[in-house]
C-alpha cells in the first residue's frame, strides 16, 4: 500500500477494546495502526482484532504518524487510555506523541477506555525488538530511557 491509497482514516493509539472495535466497524472507513513500541501493541493486539472484525487495517511505524497528519490522511484519532485521573487520563507510552500531533493538526482526539491486553512476558525493552537484541549486551539496559505511562490532559483532550 502507498500513502496515496490512504484517505479519511482513523488512527488508533493504545490497546483497543471489543467495544471500540464495534464502534469503528460502524464509523471508520479505514484504520491506521501504528505498531506502538516498545511492546508492539498495535501490531500484536489491535491489528488482529480489527482484521477479525473485517475492518480495513493498514500498519505503519510510529514515526510515520506526523507525516500522516501533515498530508491530511487522518480524520480522527482514537486514543485508548488505561484510567481517568484528576488531570485527565493515563495512557500508555507514546500517547502524548500521537495525540499532540493530532491536535496540532486540528484532528479531533476521542479518548476511550483501553481493552484488556495481556502484556505478561511481552518484550517491553527499548533496546530490543520483539525479543531480538539489536545492540551489544553492555548497552542494553543502562542507557535506555524506560517508557512510562503518560498523563494526558486538556492540551490534547479538548
Amino acid at each position: 500500500m502507498e500513502l496515496k491509497d490512504i484517505k479519511d482514516a482513523t488512527l488508533v493509539w493504545g490497546a483497543l477494546s471489543a467495544e471500540t472495535v464495534k464502534l469503528l466497524k460502524k464509523t471508520a472507513r479505514a484504520v491506521v495502526v501504528p505498531e506502538i513500541r516498545p511492546a508492539l501493541v498495535g501490531l500484536y493486539h489491535n491489528a488482529p482484532l480489527l482484521r477479525k472484525a473485517d475492518i480495513e487495517v493498514v500498519c505503519c511505524c510510529d514515526n510515520v504518524v506526523g507525516l500522516l497528519f501533515y498530508k491530511g490522511k487522518i480524520s480522527k484519532t482514537v486514543l485508548c487510555y488505561k484510567r481517568q485521573v484528576a488531570a485527565g487520563v493515563v495512557a500508555r507510552a507514546g500517547s502524548l506523541y500521537a495525540a499532540l500531533l493530532s491536535k496540532l493538526h486540528k484532528v479531533p482526539v476521542e479518548a476511550v477506555l483501553e481493552g484488556n491486553v495481556d502484556c505478561q512476558g511481552v518484550d517491553k525493552d527499548v533496546s530490543t525488538l520483539g525479543g531480538r537484541r539489536l545492540i551489544g549486551e553492555d548497552d542494553c539496559t543502562r542507557f535506555v530511557i524506560k517508557p512510562d505511562d503518560e498523563v494526558l490532559g486538556e492540551e490534547v483532550l479538548r
Binding site: 506502538i36 510510529d62 507514546g94 533496546s127 545492540i135 548497552d139 517508557p147
Partner: peptide, 25 residues
C-alpha cells in the same frame, strides 16, 4: 539504535536510547 547510538557509545559519548514515540513526553 544500530548506527547512531552504537557509534556514540563506542566512543564513550553520553547517549540514551528511546522509542520514537517517547519524544513528546
Amino acid at each position: 539504535v544500530r548506527l547512531s547510538f552504537w557509534e556514540l557509545r563506542k566512543n564513550n559519548i553520553p547517549a540514551l536510547l528511546i522509542c520514537d514515540n517517547q519524544a513528546a513526553l
